[in-house]
Nucleic acid binder design. Structure first.
Lengths: 248, 248
DNA sequence: CCGGAAAATGAATCAAGTTCAATTATGCCC
DNA sequence: GGGCATAATTGAACTTGATTCATTTTCCGG
């Protein structure tokens, strides 16, 4: 049946419209002021129609967060096959996350909000699962980099930790720094000037502490900055497919 | 005027009653189901009376979080003057936080919720400031341990980072792991068995990576566990003033 | 004791999310 | 093409729970 298929597509398009319009409204007025009735009006639909797609307001918010998370995960995809050392690829992980959250600060705040017990419990089981699923490719990509490092001999002596548990350490450091950067009053309380430069520094320190070769002298500020620039250039090239002299 | 003073005290006592009863209700029924009218009833006051103390529900939640955070900060107080190496004191920081959050998981979830843009903005300026202030002693205590380490020569070669920025790294690691441990679906997604054992491991790795002496062999599981036990024993002793062999 | 200020009360108000009976559109079959 | 059954859409009514505020009660100095 082609009719079924068309309907499904139309439905999906409309859901996309709702999600994108909601993102616009949130950017304009803030998460606090998002109202279901206003969103419906902005999309030229009745309030009730929203509930054909989302079981509740929280459900909608989770759908938005999931959408963003998909995009975020896409940014991590090319990292495992980047033409660079395992250590540089790990740096790429940190930089990719920094860059994404810097461009989409709303995403982080929304994700934090929907991860909250209160909001989480108010969304449908399906959306909860979709959100978790959307994040999985990130941990998989990072774990692959770790596994490659172990395989290549860049990372030895941690037989009792699985790659995903090494990856989790960096997830914590990253997420923690995003939290520090985006939570009211915290940056001031900690008097941290540039949270993401600090994250890169601590990231290197953690890599060094895990014995991840080649070790980087974190005291050499210029080397650290140069390495970040070099890896960022690689990332940009991997995102723009028409590389000057690519041979896949 | 003594009357003024008494009134103020009574007011404070009642505020305490509200906060503690609210904590009970949250523990019993969950944050999601806390209702202002039910809280008032549980305290044998009218709903309106609550608003003599808290400008809104969010304001109340922030007051609860602040109360908890005070207690949490108290746990960190003895650490800087613990009779141990600077590295062991830093481990004490991590362990103290792990233990507090393990005993008070509600606190972490509430803190995460009130730190959310939506809730934060709905609380009074005064409460916002009080919450930030309540957390400050923790970063100060940790920063003091870092400063001591630098002074003692245990931590060299990081002239451009201030103690508070080193402390921030551990804040991120800790907060990140609490988030991982307490956010639905994440532990499963990352397949992490024991998040706090992992936190201790990564904590040591970060300390090693910063060059914090004496370095610890993270591959030696027994040594890592023993060190944690030893430091925990110190912490217990510092909390219970009457040590076993003391002449009371 | 009294008068008036301050505090407490809880029913009324309000706001926003959610529902659902009525309406409209859609697609299928003859 | 027309009529029928089903599904989708609508938006006003409903619901829930936070917040307010007119009224009542308490408190305190003189």
């Amino acid at each position: 049946m082609s009719t079924q298929e068309r309907k499904r597509r139309e439905r999906e398009t409309r859901e996309q419209l709702f999600i994108e319009t909601a993102q616009d409204l949130i950017r304009r007025d803030g998460l606090l002021h998002l109202q279901m009735s206003r969103l419906a009006e902005a999309c030229d639909y009745a309030t009730g129609t929203l509930y054909q797609h989302f079981s509740s307001k929280e459900d909608l918010l989770m759908a938005i967060a999931t959408e963003d998370l998909h995009r975020r995960a896409t940014a991590f995809e090319p990292i495992p096959s980047l033409p660079a050392s395992s250590r540089e690829r790990m740096l790429a992980v940190v930089l990719t996350d920094i860059d994404f959250i810097s461009i989409h600060p709303d995403h982080f705040q929304l994700l934090q909000y929907v991860s909250t017990e209160v909001v989480w419990a108010s969304a449908s089981l399906e959306r909860q699962r979709a959100l978790v699923r959307a994040g999985a490719p990130i941990s998989e990509a990072v774990s692959r980099v770790v596994a490659d490092a172990i395989h290549a001999g860049d990372l030895v002596g941690i037989p009792f930790l699985r790659p995903v548990e090494i990856a989790a350490g960096f997830w914590c450091l990253n997420t923690g720094m995003h939290t520090l950067a985006h939570t009211h009053g915290l940056l001031e309380a900690y008097a941290v000037r540039d949270p993401y430069a600090l994250l890169i520094h601590h990231g290197h320190a953690l890599l060094n502490g895990l014995g991840w070769q080649p070790l980087v002298d974190t005291g050499n500020t210029k080397a650290v900055i140069d390495a970040a620039e070099r890896v960022r250039a690689l990332l940009v090239r991997s995102t723009n497919p028409e590389s000057p002299a690519a041979t896949s």
